[in-house]
Each structure stands twice: as C-alpha cells, then as structure tokens.
Design a protein around this nucleic acid. Structure first.
Length: 462
RNA sequence: GGUGGGUUGGCCGAGAGGCGAGGCAACGGACUGCAAAUCCGUUUACACGGGUUCAAAUCCCGUACCCACCUCCA
C-alpha cells in the first residue's frame, strides 16, 4: 500500500486514487527563463521516481508537467539580452529538455505550455468573475484580480490566515481591493511590453497571471478533480495556495494530495543565478555522468534538504560505480523481482534512501556470492529490477551515451587495447613484470584503466 | 509578526521509544607478481539543559544556532 506525505494535511496518508487503478498527476515544471541547475533537476527526478513507482504499482498514470513560457522574468531577461521573449523561453526550454534527457527523466504524458492555453485561462477567469471571486481592476489597467476575501478557506493549503500575511513590501495596490489579491490577468502595458506578449481578452489585451495557467491546464488534462499535485517547496505559497483557491472557487475539487520536494542548497543557501555557473547541469556533467548525478539525487529523500557539494557528488559516483561493477561481474541478465524491503521502503512515502540501502545490501550479497563461486544471477536480477524502478539502470537505452557511434568506437578501442593486452599477458607469463606494467601504464596514459580479473584482463575508461 | 523545516559519527545521508540503515573515507586481514576489484573484520553518532519511561537520537519542556515561504524562485 502506497503512502504519501500530503502537505495540506501534514501527514503520511494511504494513497487512494479517485479512480481505481488510475493516477492523475500534475507537477509544476519550470519557468523557462534561465539555464537549469541541479535544484531544478532534483524536482524533475523526484517526480520521475514517483511516476515510475506508480506505474510499477500498476497504476495507469496520466502525468502532466507544465512549462511556464510567459512571465515577468522572461520579459525582463529577454529585453536585457536584446532578443524576443519567445526566443529566450524556447531556447531555455531546449536546455531543460537536454538536462532531463541527460538524467533519464522520462517524459510526462504531456507537457503543456502556458501560452498554448490562453483561451482556457480566459474562460476560467470569466467563471471566477461570474461567481464573484474575481474582479477587473477599476483603475483602467486591464488587470483582473482574484478576491481573496471572497474565498473563506483562502490559506487552507499552507495553514495561514489572511490577516497574518505580510503584504508585499512593494505592494502596489493598482486597483486591488486587498493587497493580497493576486493577478489572474495582467493588462498589456503598451509602453514597456512587446505586442507579442499580449493576447486578446474580454478585459482588453494582456497576458495571464502566473497561477491561473496551472488551474486551467490541470483542469483541461486531468479534470476538475485529480490525485496528486506536486512541485518545489517554495511553490506552496503563493503559487499552490492561489491555484487551489481559484480552482475551488470555480467549483473544482482539485488535487487530493499535495507533494513538495525540498531544496538543494550550496553554502547553506538556496540555489540562484547569483551563485555562479558551477551548478548548471552541463558543468556538473563534466564532473560526473548523468546517471551518477541521478543516483546522488535519488539517494536522498525528496522531502529532505540536501546540501550540495562536489565531494558528496563524488562519493555518490563511487557508490554507484560499486553497483555497476557488480552488474559487470555478474553479467547482465533479465530484471528479476523486487525485494520486499525495497517495495516497503518505496511504499513509505517514496523512501528512496532505505530503498537504496536495500540495493546496496543486494550488491554486497551478490559480490559475496561471486567471491564464493556461487550463482549470483538471481541477485543481479533483483539489482536490475531495483535500478530500473529508480531510473538508474545503466543498460536503459534512454541514457544518452549508448548511441551507435559509441558502440562502434567501443569496438574499435577494444580491438586496439586487446592487441596491447595480449603483449602484456605474454610478458606476465614470462614473469617480465616490468614490461607488463609498462604496457599497462601506456594504456593508462591514453585514459584507459586495466583490471585483472579471474576471467582475464578487462579495460574501462578512467 | 505569521507558517513550516532543520542540527546524527572523519564526510554524505537514513531512522522517529528497545536489535548500530546504507554509502564514502580510514585501518587490519584474505585474494593478487604488483595494482584494481571483491570478500571478512574494526573504529568514530545523535546541538545543549532538564523531564517522562524499565528503556529516549526518537516523546515532553526550555535554550542556542541554521534555513525556507509570506503574492509571479524547483
């Protein structure tokens, strides 16, 4: 029985889907305004593991992860860079896809973009106005606001009272009835905003506010009631609080469970653009492989704060290589059954740390079997099965490096190294270890390490 | 001011009343021409002060420090 921590009720609850055997999942993706960093990718990996686990448990999963491709920051950055906002958003979207692919984040069922759903948002805003929960600003700005005072349960997700909330420091009332009212629609500011960033609406040209897109798209693809809504902790408020308020005010039941992943920080602080380039995905992938970075992210619980360090990342890579070494030695076979302890760990609010511990236990047992000359095939099968569920199976063709050119290259290197290793073996048999070691050093200088195993020498890239 | 999270061994990172999660590192032993890999073994913990309990890292009270969110940050 899968149990999940629900942010709203603040407890781990049995997962009871609205419809037997099906799971509807909506996750807030990114605002595509800058290159993705490790923190962004953590969220994607966490929810990818959820998706995989739900599927493994037999659920038919509909997974929607949106892309916010129009917002203030995109407009500001694009203007600074002197390029159209849609070009910036599209370029960053492509970067993000590359990062997802590098980490074997499986694509969702669909990835809707905000700009593709303006009519749905306009319709929803119209409904809210009709029900008295939203109003066009009376200052002629063309803005439309959600009326938080009109919705008695506003604050229910994060357990806050409206009167305890700090009004934004730079609160510009702009025709708001209450400073906490938030924008559903933002009137086009002709003087400072490009015409391409404005869409027609009953309240004049403009663009959507941030929160309304998720309400509209979740409703379109998952219906007015769905199972799980996820995102990063920072989104709890205001984003998710507002989403829930506007959706419920429009008569939707909305999400049954709210899941939020914790932060990755560096030097004790949350990641942001100001921290430099070192944690952008391409830079991190110069240090470790994508599968190793994914292991690092999966080995921590999704609700635990992670303090990023390259040392910890290297340790994770070493730990993962131990698993790979075992599979290498045991020979790859079909994936077997998952150990009970692994299933129990995953069912307990996606307890990946405990699940990874089970994985390592199996690896140790398998290595023991190999050392004792026993058959480790079944153990290897279990290891494969566990890795598969976590998206960490090295043999998964979804990993980017397993292309045809690579295979050809590997074959070529193998042939060359084999010749040298033959010479080395001859020297070893003649007890000419100086020559043997010289050949090994020569191979090593080319970036290839040689290990002697009972089955003969084996090479790998250093 | 409001809401929430955290402080675990040399390091990373689980656990949430009673058997030392797991990994990395280190040390000893086995195997190996050497190395690597692997196996066996060893070592170091629960921020601080009280309390509850037969038993507390875990529950309660207090203290210190850190962090996140409070209207467009994963």
């Amino acid at each position: 029985m899968l149990r999940l921590y629900d942010t709203q009720t603040r407890e781990v609850r049995d997962f009871a889907p609205l419809e037997e055997g099906k799971a509807g999942l909506y996750v807030c993706g990114l605002t595509v305004q800058s290159e993705p960093h490790v923190g962004h990718v953590r969220s994607a990996v966490n929810f990818d593991v959820l998706q995989r686990w739900l599927r493994h448990e037999g659920y038919e999963v509909t997974f929607i992860r949106n892309t916010t491709d129009i917002d203030d920051k995109i407009l500001v950055k694009a203007a600074e860079q002197g390029r159209p906002w849609y070009n910036l958003a599209y370029a960053m979207k492509r970067e993000l896809d590359r990062a997802y692919e590098a980490l074997n984040v499986a694509p969702p069922t669909y990835e809707p973009a905000a700009t593709g759903h303006i009519p749905e948002m306009v319709e929803l805003i119209g409904q809210l106005i009709g029900k008295g929960h939203a109003y066009p600003a009376d200052d002629g700005s063309g803005d439309v606001y959600f009326d938080v005072r009109s919705w008695p349960s506003y604050g229910e997700l994060t357990h806050q009272k409206i009167d305890d909330m700090e009004a934004a420091e730079d609160a510009d009332p702009r025709g708001k009835r209450d400073p906490r009212d938030f924008a559903l629609w933002k009137g086009w500011k002709k003087a400072s905003e490009p015409e391409t960033a404005a869409w027609p609406s009953p309240w004049g040209p403009g663009r959507p506010g941030w929160h309304i897109e998720c309400s509209a798209m979740a409703g379109k693809y998952l219906g007015t009631a769905f199972d799980i809504h996820g995102g990063g902790v920072d989104l709890r408020f205001p984003h998710h609080e507002n989403e829930q308020a506007q959706s419920r005010a429009a008569g939707h039941q909305f999400a049954s469970y709210w899941m939020h992943n914790a932060w990755i920080t560096t030097s004790g602080e949350k990641m942001s653009k100001s921290l430099g380039n070192s944690l952008l995905i391409p830079a991190v992938l110069e240090r470790v492989r994508g599968i190793e970075l994914r292991y690092y992210l999966v080995a921590a619980h999704y609700r635990s704060h992670v303090e990023f360090s390259f040392e910890a990342l290297d340790e994770a890579a070493a730990a993962f290589q131990r698993i790979e070494n075992f599979l290498d030695r045991a020979g790859s076979g079909a994936a077997g059954e998952l150990p009970e302890a692994f299933v129990a760990a995953m069912d307990d609010d996606l307890g990946t740390p405990a699940a990874v511990a089970v994985l390592h236990d199996a690896v140790r047992e398998g290595n023991r079997q190999l050392a004792a000359g026993e058959d480790a095939g079944a153990t290897a099968g279990q290891v494969r099965a566990m890795l598969d569920v976590l998206g960490l199976d090295p043999e998964d063709p979804a990993w980017p490096s397993s292309g045809g050119a690579d295979a050809q290259l590997t074959g070529a290197v193998d042939a060359l190294v084999a010749g040298l290793l033959g010479q080395r073996q001859a020297a070893r048999e003649a007890k000419d270890f100086a020559t043997a070691d010289a050949i090994r050093d020569q191979i090593k200088a080319a970036g290839i390490e040689v290990e002697d195993t009972p089955a003969g020498p084996k090479w790998s890239l250093a």
